[in-house]
Amino acid sequence: MDDLTEMLKGTLEGCVLEIIGGEETYGYAITRRLNELGFTDVVEGTVYTILLRLEKNGLVKATKRPSELGPPRKFYTLNDAGRDELAVFWAKWEYLTSRIAKLKEGGR
C-alpha cells in the first residue's frame, strides 16, 4: 500500500521494538523484515534514526560484532525498560484499534 508513511510514523518505533524483542538483530535485517511485511517504503535510514533513539533512551542494548562483510555491525536486544515500553506500546495499540473499530461500526 502506498503512502502509509504519515500514519505509520507513530507506530514504527513499536514495530522495531517488537522485532528486536523476537530475537537479537541489526538495522538492515529489521528493515527487510518491515519491507517483507508490506511496509515497502521504510528505508534503513529511518530504522537507523529509531535505533539511535531507542539506544539513547536506554530501551535496547547494542553490541558491536564483526560481520563477514565489511565493518562491524551493531546488534540490538531489548532490556527490561525496552520490554516494558513494548508492553505499553501494545496496550496503547489495543486501545486505539478497539476505539477506531467502534467508531467504524457506528457504536458509542
Binding site: 538492515y28 528505508v43 534503513e44 535510514g45 560481520s67 562483510l69 565489511g70 565493518p71
Partner: peptide
C-alpha cells in the same frame, strides 16, 4: 555498513 551491503546511498536513507 550500507556500502558493505552494496546499496546506493539513497537506497539506504
Amino acid at each position: 555498513e550500507g556500502v558493505a551491503t552494496g546499496r546506493g546511498v539513497l537506497e539506504l536513507i
